[in-house]
Structure formats: C-alpha cells, structure tokens
Design a protein around this nucleic acid. Structure first.
Lengths: 189, 189, 189, 189
DNA sequence: GATGAATGAGAGTTCATTCAT
DNA sequence: GATGAATGAACTCTCATTCAT
C-alpha cells in the first residue's frame, strides 16, 4: 500500500513541523499516522531518513505548484496572483517545515541542504525571468533592476502571507492579495 | 559576576542557534562558555529557562537597535538606511535564533511566545508610524495604504538581507542597501 | 510434511550456532530454511521451543552415532577409531552448538539442561565401560584407574579434534586419529 | 577511581558469562556493579566495547597465571601440578566466559578474535616446549611425538577440571590433580 | 562558588509474535 | 497451510540534572 508511505510522510510533516527534528518523537508520528511505531521502520530506515524524505516530499510539492503558477497565460499580474494563491495554500500546510528546513542545519545531509538552497535559487530565478519578461513587455518600467525587483516581490509576498497566516491566523482562502499586487506593480511600473 | 551570566547567554545563543532547543546540549553550551556543566545551574534554573532568557536577551538587543535606528533625525530614507545597517548586524549575530524562535514553538512558554509576537508587532507598528509620517510629509505618495507599504518595506529588507547573508554569505558590513531603498521609495512615492 | 520440520531444525542449527540464542533472528532462520517467517510458528510454538527442539535433535544424533561407534566388533582401539571418526563428523556439523548448549544456560529449561548433562554423563559412562572391558581383556593395564583413563581418552580426543577443526580448519575427513589413539593406548597399556 | 572500571569489568564478566553477549543487559551489569546504567558509558563506549575489554581482561589474567605456572622450578610434573592448580582457579572464575568467547563469534572484532586464538596457540606452544624439555631430560620417553603428547596433556587436564567443576560442582580448591598427572606421565614416560 | 561523575527517564530502534489475506 | 506487514515490549544509549568534593 503506497498510501501507507504517504500517510507516514504526512504525519511526519505535522509532527516535525511542530517540534523540530529533535523534539519530534517517532511514537508521536506513528500515533498521528494511526499505526504502531515499529511500522514506520518498514518504510523508512531511521528518523533521519524519514526527515529527509519528508523534506524532499515538501520540495516536490512546491516545485509542482510553482511551475503551475508561473506558467499560466497572462502578464506578471496574473502570474503573481496565481503565485500568491499557491503560496498561501502551501504555507498553510508547510508553514513550519519551511523554518525547520532552515533550522536543523546539522541534521540535514549536505546533499539535501544543497537541494533546498538550489530549489530556492531556482524559484528566485524563475521569478526573475518573469520580471524581466514584464520589463521587456513594459508591464514594468525599463530602467528597473530586475534583481532588486524580484527581491521586493518575493519579500513582500512572503511577509504578507507570513503575517496573515502566522500572526493574524487568517485562513489562506480568505486572504486577498489583489491590493498587495497592485501596490507592488504600481511601484515598479 | 554578571559577566558570567552574559557569557553563558552568548554561548547559549551560539549553540541553540546551531542545533535548536532539543539538539543543543548543556555540556556544549558550558564548553563554549569555558565553564563546567554544573555552573550553568548556578545562573539558570533549567535548560528551558536558559532558552527563555536567551531569547529575551535577543529581543532586548533588537529593541535597543530598532529604537536607535528609527529615532535618528531625517526622512524615511535615512531611517531605512539605519534600519538596514542595524538589521544586517543583528542578522549576522542572530541569523539562526530568529528561526529557532519560530520553530521550537512548543518549547517556548506561551508567555514568551506572546512577547515575541508582540515585539514583532511593535516593530511593525513603529515602522508603520514612520511610513505614515513619510506619507504625511509627502515623502511617500498620499493615497498609499500604509499597512501594505510597511509590509513591502519590511519584507523587501528582510528578503534582501536574508539572501545576502544566508545564501550569498556576504559579510554584513559589505552589504550596501542604498539601491534597494531607492527602488522601494521610488515605487512608493 | 515432516521434511519441513526437519528443514527448519537444520536452519535453526546453523543460525543459532552462529549467533547464539539471543543473536539469532527468527527471520534469518526462516530465510535459511527458504520459508516465510510466520511458517515456523506452524511447527514450533516459540523461539525458545525451537531452540529446545534443535538441541534435542542434536543430542539424538549424537546418541545414535555414539551407540554405533561403541558397539562395533573389536577391541578398544577399533572402538576409539570409530568414535573419533564419528566425533569428527559430528563436530563438523555441531561445532558451535555444543558451545551454545553450555553457554545460554539461562535460556534452556532446567529439564533440557538436565537432559544434556545426563547425556554427557552417559557418554562418559559408556566409554568408561568400554575402558573397563579393555582393562579386563588386558588391552589396558590392570592397575589403571578407569575413571582417569576415560577422562584422558575423552579429553585427548576432544582436544585433538577441536584443535584440528576449529583452529587448523582441517576437513574432518582428512583428520587421521591413528597416531593419537596409538599414543593414548600405548600410555595406558 | 580506577576501581570503578575494574568493578564494571567484574560485573560484566559475571553477566556476560551467564547470558552471553546478546542476552546480557547493560542494566543488569550496572545493577551488579552497584551503579547506575549511565555510569558504564563514562568508562566504556558501548556494550560491544565493554565486551571487548572484558575479554582482554580475562586473557591478561590467564597470561599472567600461565607464565607463573610454567616458570616454576622443577620438572614437568611440578609444572603440570602448578598449571592444574591455576587452571582450576581460573576456570572457577571464567568457566563461562571461555565458552562465550568461542561462541559469540560474530560479535568479537576480528582483531580480538585473533588475539584469543593466538593466546590459545601460545599456551599450547609453551606447554609443548615444556614437554620437549621433559623428553630431552628423559622425564618422558624419547620416541614421543611432542605435539600429540601436548594434546593429551592439555585435553586431559581440561576434561578433568571441566568435569569436576561444571558437572560435579566440586570446589576448585578441593580438586586433587596428583593422580591424573601421575597417570598421564606414567603413560608418556 | 565551581566542578564533573553519577544518575535514570526517555529516546530511537529491533524483533518475536500475530493475523488478515 | 503459508505469508509478511504490523505490532509493541524491551533493548541500548543519551543527556538534563544533581550533589559530594
């Protein structure tokens, strides 16, 4: 049953997110998954290995969503809108894990750490490409530094959603990013 | 000797930052501080208490720096510049702790968590006030939503420094935020 | 299928010999026997029970071989020769088990332990009887203490084969006990 | 306190002897030593390492006793007598460990296994040298094969003491090897 | 006051055993 | 009857905390 593996990964995401690598107990993950603690070891070699696989799983999810968002038809505005919606959904699920990834540095095998960093760089570069395109189509102003513009866009969206979801505890479906996007684009056009 | 207490807090910052709450070992903190394991318990009640005090210590540092930055004479541009410089210095020291704070949620007593959140809200509000002042002096445009503008400013600065320090490993003294600030203000004026 | 039972006992002998009672895993025994883990429990109640039966199986084999060896026609020399040959063959198969028997004392039910000791005493006594017979037929000298003579014979043969098989790794078929037997009998006649 | 280390080794000898490597529990060893289970790890790295050190400890003891026995003044008879007395004392303490050594093959690092085998070979060779000397002084007969004679001597003594101590449960101080030695030498002279 | 040896609760992991298929 | 996925008791080992020195 491949579901069982998926099931454990979901439980692991929840528990690792909440307690971090060292704080998470295998027993809690098992309990969350509704199985015996020994069962996990039928699917993953160790706690470390489970952590590794969980993060890869999260990265894969982001990759998919990101591609979808940036490949929709339309201008930067439309793409940003889609990205925001996806980002909200993702954050809602992986809000904590994204921080765990950055934190438990010593736990992550270097290989995976590199994957994470590369993935982040890739996200940045895809966004930058979309920004450059928008500069080219004059949706944004000609003399704009695309690197800085991308930083502003990503930083603003991140801050916006982080604040809404983490602090204001607003449901991601109820967050309306239109005004934010308008203000950003207004400033960069 | 109050130095001894300070000394332990510094060591704790280093070690908790690197390994997280559960991963950090009291012995390592003691070694880092150059003292015996048992000595820590002369100054702090428990690991949890040490963690708590360490974070309060970090918050205090930020409070001080933030006040200094936002109270300098001049317009928003000058204040942002000072904030950036301070943020860089702070991030350099507390780069990991800021993530630990967000991560080891369950460890933090609710009381401290509230302090952290409130402190963040305060930072946000001080900045917002500075933004509103800038709107009033027409350094920024009249019809601007000050809430969104603050989000954009904080998010952009955070993203900018995070990228430079965490990924590009640039020394915080060498980071020049002028172009970023110009682009932000250009967009919001 | 009685073969299946025998099959498991053989596999158990191999695995228990190699790893001892606690070190042996039911899964390894099953794999060695070419069957599923659960199948063993169709033939034996538990690991302990399997261990018990395995040892009884080994004892039975020795009983049979011993009888055969000591009952052949001829003098002590011929009997000792046959015993040596059998001992070599047995040791080759049960080299480790004989030590496991003595070792995992706490595992063996007292009942079985008693059986093992009695069996050893019986071996000793049968040999002693053969020795006494040889004294009577004057194949050995009259004033010999049959108890000591038996100890010397059994000890020498055991040491001889133990050394050849365990340390010198000589195949039991290639071991020639004639000189040993001659020297022993020469000394006791 | 070096006593503490010694103390743990003694307890380990008892417990490993009784239950074998896998059957022995660290907690039991600690309890036997009258200390907490964590304390052991202050002196030994792991269960495996403790096992290793315990066996080396046993080997060292044998080395010492063996040297003493074979170096006393006098003929083979006197040396054998001293060896018997020492062997009895040693067996009494290490009766089970000697079997554990041979049994838990897979546990022992190859290095240690080699030490054990070499030590046994050394014992054999020292004895053989004493036998050859006795042949030279005509305490034993000229045409004797020294290898076989040594096997007979060692095997007989081993069997004699093994039987007395393991089966007949006779205290090693009450065992009188004179008759055995006389019979052996009588046969070999 | 400072220390670090000692402690033992609690973690990750293994594996004999069960039972639905 | 045979299987092997699932289980959880019991193992080894770690580390926050104590306390005699």
């Amino acid at each position: 049953m491949e579901n069982r593996r998926e099931n454990i990964l979901e439980a692991a995401t929840d528990v690792f997110s909440k307690y971090g690598f060292y704080g998470a107990k295998m027993e809690d993950i098992a309990k969350k998954a509704g199985i015996g603690k020994g069962t996990i070891y039928g699917y993953f070699d160790s706690k470390e290995s489970l952590f590794y696989e969980m993060i890869k799983h999260g990265i894969d999810e982001y990759e998919k969503g990101l591609d979808m968002a940036l490949n929709i038809e339309g201008g930067l505005e439309q793409k940003l809108y889609a990205l925001c919606k996806f980002h909200g959904k993702y954050l809602n699920r992986y809000i904590d894990i994204s921080q765990v990834i950055m934190m438990e540095k010593e736990v992550l095998p270097k290989e995976l750490m590199k994957e994470v960093v590369e993935e982040k760089a890739q996200l940045f570069n895809r966004m930058k490409k979309a920004v450059e395109e928008a500069i080219h189509t004059e949706e944004l102003r000609k003399n704009l530094d695309s690197q800085l513009a991308t930083i502003i866009i990503i930083g603003s969206i991140g801050q916006f959603y982080g604040q809404k979801i983490c602090y204001e505890k607003i449901d991601h479906n109820s967050i309306e990013p239109k005004d934010l996007i308008d203000t950003i684009i207004e400033g960069l056009k």
